[in-house]
């Protein structure tokens, strides 16, 4: 797959000659592409004279960055303390088994990416699952099965 680098170029332009830019720059690249493509890293390295190792150091240190494209739907399972106490781990384990991927991965058909998050701030409806920014509270495995079916339809 070829990556269109024109957006990367534009974003780099905005950040030239500013201090402390690498993280916001990469965040913007990710917001644009949905992940940080290798090709963009190469270009940033060349244009801003930063070693790739430094850029990858940051990309792999912070949990927020992805080096591969995301699936059609992103499922985030809250693993905050309250959700854990209310059975959040079972929810994550179940999804991971059912979708046959670990957290951080994407299904082969590119439908679902599975992620964990720490406290979403609505512990009152723990355990919480977020699909594409829609919140689902008091989750049970039965509810999850229905959710997956529903999102499977939305292509």
């Amino acid at each position: 797959m070829k990556v269109d680098l024109s957006d990367t170029r534009k974003i780099i332009q905005q950040y030239r000659k500013k201090k402390g830019i690498l993280i916001p720059l990469l965040q913007e690249i990710q917001a644009d592409y949905g992940y940080v493509p290798k090709e963009s890293v190469d270009l940033i390295s060349k244009e801003l004279a930063i070693y790739p190792v430094e850029i990858y150091g940051i990309l792999t240190f912070y949990a927020q960055f992805y080096l591969t494209p995301r699936g059609r739907h992103t499922i985030k399972v809250c693993q905050g303390t309250a959700c854990h106490v209310m059975g959040g781990k079972e929810i994550l384990d179940y999804l991971s088994n059912k979708l046959e991927i670990s957290e951080g991965e994407t299904t082969k058909d590119n439908m679902f990416s599975l992620e964990r998050v720490a406290c979403l701030g609505c512990c009152g409806m723990a355990p919480v699952v977020v699909v594409d920014n829609n919140f689902y509270g008091r989750c049970t495995i039965q509810k999850l099965d229905k959710l997956l079916e529903k999102y499977q339809e939305i292509k």
Partner: peptide, 8 residues
């Protein structure tokens, strides 16, 4: 504002 990127 500076945004963190997911590291405790």
């Amino acid at each position: 504002i500076k945004q963190g990127a997911g590291a405790f």
